[in-house]
Design a protein around this nucleic acid. Structure first.
Lengths: 137, 137
DNA sequence: CCGCATCCGATATGATACTG
DNA sequence: CAGTATCATATCGGATGCGG
């Protein structure tokens, strides 16, 4: 076991380490399966400001359908990232809120977003070069 | 300012910050569109060990089809994350290697993987609880 | 207001075979 | 060995309508 201290924030490169099987990679894929869809990140980002009602979330995201918001929230709720509180009033009122687990996801997501913002120009430049490149080159 | 905790290692929580439009969120979604598919992360993780030939990658990943590996590598190449070097020998030999841009993605990906590994038990526990919960509870 | 079911098109993935 | 094309299928996401 070549890992002396199990500090959570230790900067080991799990993705590259070959001391273990691809268990870390599989864990990453599990998470990407969750947040890699079209709306989950947007919903998490919206709920990061605080509890919000269903229609408020839908208005905030603008483009998400009624159905997909329901499904996305269900998935997040199932994973323990979002808590749902329904009030049996007329009309009904349902509030959604990020759990501590859900909030803890924001930091790593933000790290990825920092990378995305920094490298977007480079990526788009590479894409343009690739698309404009003739076959024989 | 309803945001209590700002992680020391990240100057700003872009995902939550409301001073700008959702431009950061969009950048994040762009990246997730790329790496959020079924194989990209696995390919990046495999190439992280060094340059590798097409069939070597396919054998390393085990489960990926010929076609999907081709498409995944094409996408990564287009984004400037992978460089492709073809040798016109018989039989042909093609090597793929992570570019500096591709390697720079490993760190944020690793951050996310750390989160995934730490919280996988919590998530699975939440899923079990959710699935076993009767409607009336 | 919120949730669910149904239908339907778009897209992602996989199997297979052919080419250089 | 590496790449491409074609076909089949599964899943995703959107529109819509009904129910509580």
């Amino acid at each position: 076991m070549p890992i002396p201290n199990a500090t959570p924030s230790s900067p080991r490169l799990h993705l590259v380490a070959d001391d273990e099987d691809h268990s870390g990679c599989r864990a990453l894929l599990q998470v990407l399966d969750r947040i890699g869809d079209k709306w989950t990140v947007m919903v998490v980002g919206t709920l990061a400001r605080g509890p919000m009602r269903f229609n408020a979330i839908q208005r905030a995201i603008n483009g998400i359908s009624h159905r997909m918001l329901t499904l996305t929230l269900r998935g997040l709720e199932r994973d323990g990232m979002v808590e749902r509180r329904a009030f049996a009033t007329i009309p009904p009122k349902v509030e959604y809120e990020l759990t501590p687990l859900g909030r803890s996801l924001i930091a790593p997501l933000d790290t990825l977003m920092g990378w995305a913002q920094e490298n977007r120009p480079t990526i788009e430049q590479a894409q343009t070069g690739y698309d404009g490149r003739p076959q024989g080159d």
